[in-house]
């Protein structure tokens, strides 16, 4: 009986904290995305990049993030596992994490003209052999930032 009450209290608390944290995070991400729109331009999967414009600087930029789900989401997901279908609580976690990692990468290259061949690498950190462990994932986003020399004429 005590266990059940404890579980319900824990679920209530984590529902509120989780949704508040997520809402705030999405709000921040949206603001930063609007601020960084097309600055720098970002391309995915351009392995051969050629340009005739004079290039000032070429560097590798990265952004990393480790994110975890909350207890409530984990509970909902484990219930959903019985019926199958979309696991929306985990989708939002991964979406948040990837966007955050990309934003961190773009903020590091704020003065660059273009980011070429952006890639996203994901790894799950939690122990998959323990059932119902809260998922944590680490994400690295990386790409090549290229700054054109605007003073030099072609």
């Amino acid at each position: 009986m005590f266990d059940l009450i404890f579980l319900i209290i824990l679920l209530c608390i984590t529902y509120f904290t989780g949704s508040i944290i997520e809402k705030n995070h999405f709000k921040k991400i949206k603001q930063r995305e609007i601020r960084l729109i097309k600055k720098p331009i970002i391309t995915y999967g351009t392995k051969r990049f050629q340009t005739n414009r004079p290039v000032k600087k070429v560097e590798l930029v990265t952004g990393e993030v480790v994110i975890s789900g909350d207890y409530f989401k984990n509970f909902v997901a484990s219930l959903k596992n019985l019926f199958g279908g979309k696991l929306t609580p985990f989708e939002s976690i991964l979406d948040r994490a990837r966007r955050e990692a990309l934003l961190k990468m773009r903020e590091k290259a704020a003065n660059a003209s273009i980011i070429v061949n952006a890639r996203i690498e994901t790894v799950l950190l939690n122990n998959i052999y323990i059932p119902n462990s809260v998922p944590q994932c680490a994400i690295i986003a990386y790409g090549t930032a290229i700054t054109y020399d605007n003073q030099k004429k072609l």
Partner: peptide, 18 residues
């Protein structure tokens, strides 16, 4: 882990590792 969100200390660890 219980309340959810970004784990800042682990992010730093990952940056160091990278």
């Amino acid at each position: 882990n219980i309340v959810g969100g970004e784990l800042k200390s682990y992010t730093e660890l990952l940056t160091e590792a990278r």
